[in-house]
Design a protein around this nucleic acid. Structure first.
Lengths: 141, 141
DNA sequence: GTAATTGCAAATACTTTGCCACGTA
DNA sequence: TACGTGGCAAAGTATTTGCAATTAC
């Protein structure tokens, strides 16, 4: 665990970042929580709340995302996305991380079996999924 | 196309909503655009911009989401989520739509093959994906 | 010493609500 | 008529930035 933190901080160092207390605590927190976290959660977490300002956490997250150490989940920076549910229709999406282009993927979705397994193993009900592919589109590349 | 709009509006009617111009135009817009859209995009779209206020679109989206006619994408209502990328590790997530619980899915991810196909067919580069399962956890059910 | 990083406070951006008028059933 | 719906404007919440002070290297 601590080893992974050290390795990750080393990667940051090689990418030109400085070794600060806030950076180490941020990475340790993300690693030990082991699920996606929000800026607010991180800034208020025990390792960071007295360590630094929320703006610092924000800028750390920003730099780490640029350098590919962390990933910001979801389709867009700010706004919420809505999609129409048409019975018998299901779309996965392909999104360009440069220009924001969003298009539907024309292929059978390969996760239904896993979805069934999860339903059985976890007891979750009303299960559905979202699947998005991200990358650089030919135009932007 | 128009048929699907009509069917969808009928579903809304059966769920207690009234047939308004704004509702029809909103559904028509979502259907013809055929990708997730934001509140802002919808309110500014040609079918809606002169038709109604942004607050109206907001409330329509809210009602439609409650009734299961549309879906709001992503993990949370407002905040952005960040996750640490550890080389050689990949997580899909299972999220409870009631209490917000997020846990990692312990299963081989079944979409790598499709990801390869997309890479080849579309020419997208630096491809990666996000896969989330949503449902009601046993505790909330 | 120099450039990256930080804290604080102010500014944005997108969302959400209150309240009263209006339209559909 | 009655209750869902709509417009306008104000409030709320999470994010983002400016700038001077600080810190890592």
């Amino acid at each position: 665990m601590d080893k992974v933190v050290a390795e990750t901080v080393d990667r940051c160092r090689k990418l030109g970042m400085r070794r600060t207390k806030a950076l180490e605590q941020l990475i340790a927190t993300l690693l030990e929580t082991d699920r996606p976290m929000t800026l607010g959660e991180l800034a208020d977490s025990k390792r960071l709340t007295d360590q630094c300002d929320k703006a610092t956490v924000f800028r750390l997250l920003q730099r780490l995302a640029e350098k590919g150490i962390i990933r910001r989940l979801g389709l867009h920076e700010r706004a919420a996305y809505f999609t129409l549910l048409v019975p018998g229709r299901h779309h996965d999406y392909l999104i360009c991380t440069e220009c924001g282009l969003i298009e539907a993927v024309n292929a059978p979705c390969p996760v239904h079996q896993l979805e069934d397994e999860i339903r059985q193993k976890t007891g979750f009900q009303n299960l559905y999924h979202e699947l998005e592919f991200f990358g650089t589109c030919p135009t932007c590349a």
